[in-house]
């Protein structure tokens, strides 16, 4: 192997700035997408556990649609195809007019896609709490909405803290797909440094370490959160 090591390149201008800016975009895309994925995913998941056939079908349709098309293709659909389907002026606005079109498109696309995965976790959590708890709530005269509010949701979200954590990490990793529509996030910047300097080893190592760091920190934090949220006396249902 013939390779000229030069770790110093990472600290040179402008490459250091590229890494910092790429890292910030990665974090920003992930967080914005997560807010959308978590809220929409909760609604989708809850819909899929209701008694109404119609609402369940909406939830199921959403999940099946978003999880059976590759995320990259969805990215292209939102970025290239969606504006074409709108009336001309609206399409132009989506393409050029709205603030940071690439970033916005990437975050929304990632959020909508991950909502289908979050929805599955929420549904699984609520079903794990069980029909018995639902019946107990109803038997006391709580309305179905109150049963969700006071029983099913508080218990199930505690159970699904570990899978939700891994969904967040999935969003974090999938945010790299934003580079395909031109968001210069961490992976894109590492690639760009490689192309400019031919120091691919250093650039990719830096990006890899940053991804591993964030993953480790998130997992540590969530372990603490899980401990705090644990119900005394209960063996954590989600502990696997």
């Amino acid at each position: 192997m013939n390779y000229n090591w030069d770790w110093g390149v990472l600290l040179q201008e402008p490459y250091f700035d590229w890494l910092v800016s790429g890292f910030s975009w990665t974090i920003t895309v992930s967080l914005v997408a997560w807010v959308l994925a978590f809220s929409l995913g909760s609604i989708v998941g809850i819909l899929r556990t209701t008694d109404s056939k119609f609402l369940r079908a909406i939830g199921t349709g959403y999940v099946e649609f978003f999880r059976n098309i590759p995320l990259l293709v969805q990215m292209f659909l939102w970025y290239f195809v969606f504006p074409e389907l709108l009336p001309e002026s609206a399409g132009m606005w989506v393409k050029r007019g709205m603030p940071m079109p690439e970033f916005t498109t990437a975050a929304i696309c990632l959020g909508l896609y991950t909502a289908s995965r979050v929805g599955e976790q929420v549904r699984a959590g609520i079903l794990a709490v069980g029909i018995g708890q639902r019946n107990a709530g109803l038997a006391m005269g709580l309305t179905p909405a109150q049963v969700y509010r006071f029983v099913l949701v508080p218990v199930s979200y505690r159970i699904i803290i570990p899978p939700l954590t891994s969904e967040f990490l999935t969003i974090f990793k999938n945010s790299s797909l934003a580079l395909t529509i031109g968001v210069l996030e961490l992976t894109a910047q590492a690639r760009q440094i490689e192309e400019y300097t031919f120091q691919g080893f250093e650039a990719f190592t830096a990006a890899t370490l940053l991804y591993i760091c964030v993953t480790s920190i998130v997992m540590l934090i969530m372990r603490v959160v899980e401990g705090k949220a644990a119900i005394p006396g209960m063996i954590s249902l989600g502990a696997k």
């Binding site: 107990a136 038997a139 006391m140 218990v155």
Partner: peptide
């Protein structure tokens, strides 16, 4: 239901 009490096999207290 608020006038009828029910007790379940598996207790179903809210954990």
């Amino acid at each position: 239901r608020s006038h009828i009490g029910m007790v379940f096999q598996n207790f179903e207290l809210f954990p």
